[in-house]
């Protein structure tokens, strides 16, 4: 689908301009497309994150759907409450959404998220993943990748990124997907698909962050594209337990000439300035193996 075609059905804006997001924010770009796919009959719960700030100052808001700001660890539980409250009143046509950052998802909110998934709560959880606590000024999170500088990992994080999408898939929920703010159409279509499924749905979106990742604000979309084209970030879906690569990621597997060395992704960001050539080679090897594995998994069940 082309941008021009998608404009015909998705011209309505639900994230209004003039908000307090940083210039070139990947998160607002992603939220814009999520809401275009969901429409106005949507209620959002937003646990502590950039999202609580970028909607603007009282008494105005940039969001034109109900938007409930919530304590850090409480997003999925509050969403469960809203789902239950609407359910008991017979209000069936409203989509309940939790819009949370990676810290709120992988760290402080993981218990609540896991509980809601285990209960197969009828809502869509979006993790917008900028790979650190950006709202508080770039501290490491469980979702920060190895090698990335943050203010609490001045020499680069040593540990690996927690794979939340796989963790959520292991809950055997009906729908899990990954996306990236640089692929609005992919995100739009996955969100539309998720909207039609009942039960717990989880979409994990990589959103580049100019101040936190240390790149120029105009490069937000480019950096996200490099993440996918290098295979550093995979786009896929897990539908009823079956793993499917999404077209942008399948493309780099089918046409290796479209693959970008991970070095390009790493070198484009200041946060990876501590990584040396040897480490980049190691990372490249890991990605090669990951892609090989992903190609084999395509169309196969993810777990037993």
């Amino acid at each position: 689908m082309s941008a021009r075609k998608i404009f015909q059905e998705a011209s309505e804006e639900y994230v209004l301009p003039g908000n307090s997001a940083c210039q070139g924010c990947g998160s607002t770009l992603a939220l814009r497309w999520v809401l275009k796919a969901l429409g106005n009959k949507t209620v959002i719960v937003n646990p502590a994150s950039c999202g609580c700030v970028y909607v603007g100052l009282y008494p105005r808001t940039a969001l034109s759907v109900p938007y409930i700001q919530m304590a850090f660890a409480a997003g999925p539980a509050a969403a469960s409450g809203i789902v239950g409250g609407l359910d008991v009143q017979g209000k069936k046509d409203i989509t309940v959404v939790c819009w949370a950052g990676d810290g709120g998802t992988a760290d402080i909110g993981v218990s609540s998220l896991s509980g809601s998934a285990e209960r197969n709560t009828n809502y869509i959880y979006f993790c917008y993943d900028n790979e650190a606590y950006m709202n508080t000024g770039t501290q490491r999170s469980g979702s920060t990748p190895a090698g990335a500088w943050t203010t609490t990992t001045p020499l680069g994080k040593k540990e690996s990124k927690k794979d939340m999408a796989f963790i959520m898939a292991a809950h055997r929920i009906p729908y899990v997907a990954t996306s990236c703010s640089s692929y609005p159409i992919d995100l739009y279509e996955k969100t539309k698909k998720a909207k039609l499924i009942g039960g717990m749905r989880y979409i994990h979106i990589l959103v580049p962050c100019p101040p936190g990742w240390r790149f120029d604000t105009g490069l937000t979309v480019k950096i996200g594209r490099l993440a996918v084209e290098s295979g550093m970030w995979l786009l896929y879906e897990v539908k009823n337990g079956i793993f499917y690569l999404s077209p942008p990621s399948r493309r780099i597997l089918e046409s290796p000439e479209k693959r970008v060395p991970v070095k390009e992704y790493i070198k484009a960001q200041g946060r990876f300035r501590g990584i040396d050539e040897r480490e980049i080679d190691l990372l490249q090897e890991m990605i090669d193996k990951k892609l090989e594995k992903a190609a084999k998994l395509d169309g196969e069940p993810l777990f037993f």
């Binding site: 719960v45 409930i68 919530m70 304590a71 660890a73 409480a74 997003g75 999925p76 539980a77 509050a78 969403a79 469960s80 409450g81 809203i82 789902v83 239950g84 409250g85 609407l86 359910d87 008991v88 009143q89 209000k91 218990s111 609540s112 896991s114 509980g115 285990e118 209960r119």
Partner: peptide, 28 residues
């Protein structure tokens, strides 16, 4: 009793869920 019962995974979540439900206008 006609009610929704949500067996949450912690008390923190129990109160969060009541807050969510109460925000829709139901007695919790």
């Amino acid at each position: 009793l006609k009610a929704v019962f949500v067996p949450v995974e912690s008390e923190h979540s129990a109160m969060a869920a009541c807050i969510g439900a109460s925000l829709t206008g139901v007695r919790t």
